[in-house]
Design a binder for these strands. Structure first.
Length: 880
RNA sequence: GGGCGGUUAGCUCAGUUGGUUAGAGCGCUACGUUGACAUCGUAGAGGUCAUUGGUUCGAAUCCAUUACCGCCCACCA
């Protein structure tokens, strides 16, 4: 006899199995040519990261596929790891330093990097511990870090290779400069904030004339960098200025008036000053018109030597002084209030200065071509499918990738400049006579290492040896990638490009973009908004399985998850239900184990057995289908309803009757119940791994060294569905529900034994019912259940009319009135409308000519049934 | 501003190629607790499928329009 606790203690169980799985190295994978493989690489979380709801959802999804495929017999490999996350990590350590009143410059580059490594060893990687807590069945022996040696080598190799192919170049481009962190940041690290600002109107006088062109600008301090004034070619107002020159204030320099359709005639004055060095659009206009780009703001956001008397001033100061001077010079018109978006740095909240800077770029056009093709050809599929459009739009308009970052924590660019000759040396290893060379100070964008992730984690070396790389050849391409939609360009698209360039093969076959997790009101969860519940503490409170189940249950493909603490009930209640069903089965098994052999008889299968087998097969077919379509919520829902509605509400209740009435069958009955229960545990294991492992061990002795995660889930079989049994069972449920309802309506306690009479026009109906007559009697607590041709009208009855049969509940003394007339009338009214609608449809020539025969027959059948029902209901009302 | 989605019961969502009196879970209401489970059971009430128009014998489903919501991209001097 197994001790089966009344309550499930998830905290003990989860720790136990987490340890068991890892210590036994169950999920370590090795290439096995005899088996089909299934491989996934984790989207490497930041080394600074902690597990939030997005991670919980994403890693649960990956775990579901890993576990399901493993149970289907695949050699599954799910590779974990982390990203060194340049800016995020560096900023974190810099903040620590700041507490001691120090900056990174006090330490110097080398010492600072050492410090970051220390920080990583001590505080980094919290999220990997949390992945263990989540139950992620990853292969820990393959854990990688984007900054570890192998991956760093890969990064250098790829840089050198692209450089030698001429795809990496150094160029002057407009970049986003964060003057606080002193680095260039990408567009993705910027957010926009609406601010109240001023729009200033200035006069730029025409050369040798009293006429001026009015300029509207929010940034008068950049006028020193103006190299043109632009107007729209269609703008009649400035016709006289076209192809002439105007005088730039202060510098008295002549700049041309150019025409460019980029200029919006309706905004400001319709005349725009062009400052190619400090605005992305101006830069583009400048390129079109071959204008010079003059930098006037330095890296500390101060005006530089090109601004004459204003040199050294910061921006607000300079702006004020410039306006003052313009007024004195009579170059001032007016100012207006303006609400516009200001770009700010995600990390430092500093106002972003767009300025011209020398950076390293990757030319993306060539790399993008094959990456577009493989998605067009369907070699890579996106779920939800609509992301393919988003992908194409971006890929077909791809811009060059600025890969240099002015940080210390990251892969330093493998470029050396000769101190004497200025020659450039680019190689994986430093030049031999190092004292004559100076390495480029910049590091590479973090994504420059993560775009190689699917190759590098499997030991890619970009050499001839690759062909002998058994591990890489076995696992690449991976089968599945699950990630957040916001990194489709930053990461997903780039991995495809790297995969095509270096493996000549796609990096993954299917990409799932998971739901964004929002709070109950639909607001994206974030720490700053304070609507952020701590995922880990909720796991402690409700159990990991409950959280996993709930979050997947709430995550439909392509939609957001609206999550709040209250909703964890779904998962928690389900886990409890599953536990209690197991407890019932085990208790019953124990109780019946005393039965002697001579008490057993041959077990006769009945409707229940056929029905539950069919329901199981339907559930399995659905589960497989939903998983293959990445409809994870439907996968959980279909199993949920099988377990709760079919197995617990009906199957177990009927088992109870079988056992109480025919205890001599019970061994077979309980064997069968255990069998279905184990099947349930298996198909649920991918989503709720801990409790299913616990239950699987409790349900049968002798499994100490085994894990449910290696039990096989057999593929579904189509002919496992028995529609007749399912339909008959539905009729059975319909009768039971109707009788229970009749009792409630007539104020008869469920416990009171009642007499039921059923009248049917269908001769076969009685035969059909007979097979489950006894179950009806027991479930509804009946004294008698009779089939009659007519009813004794001297008695009072509660009645239910159901299609081709009627149920009569005999009302004994003191029972309430037999028929609720008003309710019945309402029903009749609805039914009459329905019948009229059908009649109209069936007398419509067009319908009869154009609709398919099957449809017409179906409608005719509906009409017959409805008319029958109507007649019965009317007679009911007449009799009352 | 450009692109892409969405709008079905109080809430969150299903609804296959147009042919149901439109479904589920949660919530709500009533009743029910000594034998798996009150984290439960039984039963019930709830929707003119966002608007308007069109295609069709027939529209939640296809097309167009409007309104609102969301996401992504670009960012306006």
């Amino acid at each position: 006899m197994i001790d089966f606790p009344k309550n499930y203690d998830f905290s003990v169980s989860e720790l136990k199995w987490q340890k068991f799985w890892e210590e036994k190295k169950l999920y370590e994978s090795h290439p096995d040519p005899a088996k089909k493989k299934f491989s996934i690489v984790i989207p490497p979380p930041n080394v600074t990261g902690i597990l939030h709801f997005g991670h919980m959802l994403n890693n649960t999804i990956q775990d579901i596929y890993s576990r399901w495929k493993r149970m289907e017999g695949y050699e599954v490999c799910w590779v974990p790891g982390m990203d060194h996350a340049g800016i995020a990590t560096q900023v974190m350590v810099e903040k620590e330093l700041a507490k001691e009143g120090k900056t990174k410059y006090d330490l110097g580059r080398e010492k600072f990097i050492e410090l970051v490594w220390d920080w990583k060893e001590k505080n980094g990687g919290v999220i990997l511990k949390q992945l263990r807590k989540l139950g992620a069945s990853v292969d820990w022996s393959k854990e990688r870090f984007t900054f570890d040696e192998g991956l760093s080598n890969n990064v250098r190799k790829v840089f050198v290779d692209l450089y030698k192919k001429g795809l990496i170049y150094r160029g002057n481009r407009i970049v986003n400069w964060d003057s606080v962190s002193q680095t260039v940041i990408s567009d993705d690290e910027i957010f926009y904030e609406e601010r109240n600002d001023k729009l200033y109107f200035l006069k730029y006088f025409l050369e040798n004339s009293d006429a001026y062109i009015p300029i509207a600008t929010t940034r008068p301090e950049t006028l020193f960098g103006d190299t043109a004034v632009a107007v729209n070619p269609d703008d009649e107002r400035y016709k006289m200025f076209k192809n002439k020159r105007v005088i730039l204030p202060f510098l008295n320099k002549l700049i041309p008036v150019i025409e460019d359709s980029y200029v919006d005639m309706t905004f400001g004055t319709g005349a725009l000053k062009i400052t190619p060095a400090h605005d992305i659009n101006d830069f583009e206009v400048g390129q079109r018109h071959k204008l010079e780009a003059i930098t006037v703001i330095d890296r500390n956001s101060r005006l530089n030597k090109n601004t004459g008397e204003f040199e050294g001033l910061d921006i607000p100061e300079a702006r004020e002084k410039i306006i003052e001077s313009l007024k004195k010079l009579n170059l001032w018109i007016k100012e207006e209030d303006l609400i516009h978006n200001v770009a700010l740095s995600d990390r430092t909240k500093a106002v972003i200065e767009t300025s011209l800077s020398e950076q390293w770029f990757v030319n993306m056009k060539k790399l993008a071509e094959p990456a577009i093709e493989v998605v067009e050809n369907g070699l890579i599929k996106f779920y939800p499918e609509r992301y393919t459009k988003v992908y194409f739009h971006w890929m077909k308009n791809i811009r060059d990738w600025c890969i240099s970052r002015q940080l210390w924590w990251g892969h330093q660019i493998p470029i050396w400049y000769n101190k004497n000759s200025g020659d450039i040396y680019c190689d994986i290893n430093p030049p031999e006579d190092l004292e004559n060379w100076r390495q480029d100070e910049d590091v590479l964008d973090t994504w420059f290492s993560s775009w190689l992730w699917p190759l590098s984690v499997f030991g890619w070396e970009n050499s001839e040896n690759d062909k002998q790389n058994e591990v890489l050849n076995y696992y690449y391409p991976t089968d599945f990638l699950s990630t957040a939609p916001e990194i489709i360009f930053l990461w997903v698209a780039r991995m495809i490009m790297a995969g095509m360039e270096y493996m000549k093969q796609i990096p993954f076959k299917e990409v799932y973009f998971h739901s964004t997790v929002r709070d109950g009101k639909g607001v994206k969860m974030s720490k700053s908004l304070g609507n952020f519940s701590d995922a880990i503490s909720l796991m402690d409170k409700y159990g990991t399985d409950s959280m996993r189940f709930t979050i997947v249950y709430l995550a439909p493909l392509g939609n957001d998850v609206l999550f709040d603490e209250e909703k964890t009930q779904i998962g928690r209640n389900f886990v409890t239900k599953l536990w209690n069903a197991g407890r019932f089965i085990m208790m019953t098994k124990d109780k019946l184990s005393d039965l002697k052999v001579d008490q057993l008889q041959d077990y006769k299968e009945d409707l229940i057995d056929k029905w539950i087998e069919s329901r199981y097969n339907s559930t399995l077919i659905n589960a497989e289908r939903y998983l293959s379509e990445y409809r994870l919520n439907d996968y959980t829902k279909t199993i949920y309803s099988f377990v709760w509605s079919d197995f617990c509400d009906w199957y177990i209740e009927l088992i109870k009757i079988k056992i109480n009435e025919y205890s001599n069958y019970s061994h077979t009955i309980i064997t069968s119940a255990v069998n279905y229960y184990e099947k349930i545990l298996k198909i649920l294991h991918p989503v709720i791994p801990f409790v299913t492992e616990e239950l699987w061990h409790l349900i049968e002795e002798g499994r100490e060294d085994k894990s449910i995660s290696f039990e096989r889930i057999q593929k579904s079989v189509k002919n496992g569905i028995d529609l007749t049994s399912e339909e008959n069972f539905e009729t059975f449920k319909e009768i039971v529900t109707s009788i229970r309802n009749l009792k409630v309506e007539n104020n008869i306690s469920a416990k009171t034994p009642s007499q039921i009479k059923i009248i049917s026009s269908d001769q076969k109906f009685e035969d059909k019912i007979t097979t489950f007559k006894d179950y009806i009697i027991k479930l509804c607590n009946l004294e008698t259940l009779e089939f009659l041709k007519s009813i004794d009208s001297s008695e009072k009855y509660g009645t239910a009319v159901i299609n081709n049969y009627e149920i009569f509940l005999l009302l004994t003394d003191g029972a309430a009135s037999a028929v609720d007339v008003s309710k019945l009338e309402k029903e009749i009214e609805g039914l009459e409308k329905y019948v009229a609608g059908l009649q109209k449809k069936l007398s419509n020539q067009n319908f009869l000519e154009k609709a398919e025969g099957v449809i017409i027959d179906k409608e005719k059948q509906k009409l017959i049934e409805a008319e029958q029902k109507l007649i019965k209901m009317k007679s009911l009302i007449n009799n009352s």
